[in-house]
């Protein structure tokens, strides 16, 4: 009898399992992803390797173009345009790496055939999503911060010198990256690992349209319309305004944020619909290709 009383104490807390949103469950998932990251040094290396290669490539290109423009072969406009390249590349990496950080953490569940264990537990989809968002920040911090510091050392470009504007740029880009990550994860949930390649490639569809390295005006008119509904377009326009005219365009950040709210809401709804579709198709118990 004594044992029975003791054992009955070790039961789920009465309140938490029923809670509509539990930070404890988010914490559980975050720990799981951190254990996973810590357990593999090649994965940590990979987080830094590509951003570093990208930064070096674009940094040297920028150095060359600025040198050419100063030599008088081209007008000073080229120098101004070239001066934004490394900044644009670093901001692009926030979008790209943020999305990968979200989606790859989700893929880990699929690779491990663990998703049914999670969806059968009291973990709710919004809690899983918040954990994936938090993990994308962690992965981004591991890869991105050292590279931005190296950019100062190599090329004298201080992204942190953008100050408050960097906060606005970052917030908008990370929100977009989570929206893309949500849709990709939903597609993998529904269609299995056959849809995995989307995670690695889909964000590049956005690169030409979001005007990462050139102004919106460069695009043909129909594509300008398409570009104008993408939140990152306003971020990269804002970056160029800041670097070339020393002007912070809060209005552009406002438009980007409003679009991001719409994108994120649609992506969340899409994820939930794809989850429901996966339950209907019976794919959650067999999560291979």
């Amino acid at each position: 009898m004594g044992l029975m009383r003791k054992d009955l104490v070790i039961r789920p807390r009465p309140a938490s399992p029923d809670a509509a949103f539990s930070l404890g469950r988010v914490d559980a998932m975050l720990r799981r992803y951190l254990y996973l990251l810590r357990s593999s040094w090649p994965r940590i290396f990979d987080l830094i390797y590509w951003p570093l290669v990208q930064m070096l490539t674009w940094g040297f290109l920028q150095t060359y173009l600025v040198h050419v423009s100063k030599s008088g072969a081209f007008s000073g406009g080229l120098g101004l345009a070239a001066g934004t390249l490394i900044g644009a590349m670093l901001l692009w990496d926030i979008l790209f790496r943020g999305q990968l950080g979200f989606s790859v953490s989700f893929l880990e569940e699929m690779w491990a055939r663990n998703i049914a264990n999670l969806l059968m537990s009291p973990l709710r989809p919004p809690e899983l999503i918040v954990a994936l968002m938090a993990m994308s920040l962690v992965r981004l911090a591991v890869g991105f911060v050292p590279v931005t510091l190296l950019a100062i050392w190599f090329f004298g470009f201080n992204l942190w010198g953008l100050g408050v504007a960097l906060g606005f740029f970052f917030a908008n880009l990370i929100l977009t990256s989570w929206s893309i990550g949500l849709v990709c994860s939903g597609l993998v949930l529904r269609y299995g690992l056959a849809a995995e390649s989307l995670i690695w490639t889909i964000v590049f569809l956005m690169q030409p349209l979001a005007c990462v390295f050139y102004p919106l005006a460069v695009l043909p008119r129909p594509l300008q319309l398409l570009a104008s509904i993408l939140p990152p377009t306003y971020v990269f326009e804002g970056l160029r305004a800041l670097l070339t005219r020393h002007e912070f365009r809060l209005d552009l950040m406002g438009v980007a944020f409003a679009l991001n709210v719409v994108f994120f809401g649609a992506a969340f709804a899409g994820f939930m619909l794809l989850l429901r579709s996966a339950r209907r198709a019976g794919t959650l118990l067999q999560t291979g290709e």
């Binding site: 404890g24 914490d27 998932m29 720990r31 799981r32 996973l36 880990e108 537990s121 973990l123």
Partner: peptide, 22 residues
């Protein structure tokens, strides 16, 4: 048909699920 993450230790795996189940 369901597995647990291979790179986590048994203790870590069980710890994560214990937290999920409060």
């Amino acid at each position: 048909y369901v597995d647990m993450p291979h790179r986590l230790t048994v203790r870590q795996n069980l710890g994560v699920f214990a937290r999920l189940y409060a």
